[in-house]
Amino acid sequence: MTLLEIADLHISYGPVDAVRGVTLDVEKGGVVAIVGPNGAGKTSILSAVQGLVRTRSGTIRLRGAEITDWSPERRARAGIAFVPESRGIFGSLSIAENLSLAACALAEKATAAAQIERSLELFPVLADRLNQRASVLSGGERQQLAIGRALVSSPDLLVLDEPSLGLAPVILDGLFASLAALRDEGRTILVVEQNVSRAVRLADHVYSLRGGLLERLENPQDLVGDPAFRAKHLGME
């Protein structure tokens, strides 16, 4: 079953076309990764899925229902959880409050405590510091809080923007282990990632976005070490 369908999506910022006709399906239980150089429009696509940017044309469907004109909060309640590149942590709120915020997207409020408990099991570092302000967290802890918070709403679709950005390699191992565990649980994940080798290992399907256009990569495993591929799809020398 297709959970998310993006069809012919166009996004412009003033005269600049960021996304030019992107079509993408995400199967339920699947993991889709998008790679590409900076400024390719990756964040724009994810923001459009959560309803944070205005699209120029095209449609977005969730479980077959068109959600293109829905507000961000309605999408959250329909089961989309977004972890932005900036993590979106509320520094003036405590860690417990950050987690509890996502509970307002839950259909059954009574399950909130259990959901928060599950996230804390996944990321135990948060459990000891529940009453501290989130602004004291380190970069890795912020990422764990952001993902843990997203899971509190028990989302059907987890949307992650550059989860590895700014994290030390040792922390990355733990992070991607957690993401792999979520995948094995059957969660649906749409992730934008610059770290191609990790993205390829995590995802079922990998797409490359360049200049606002999407291209499906066949056999991405073979391409990871290929310098020509890296130059072409990631803008790296």
Partner: peptide, 11 residues
């Protein structure tokens, strides 16, 4: 004007 405001698009 377009040339002037054509800043790199975010992300």
């Amino acid at each position: 004007r377009t040339e002037i405001v054509a800043a790199p698009e975010p992300g």
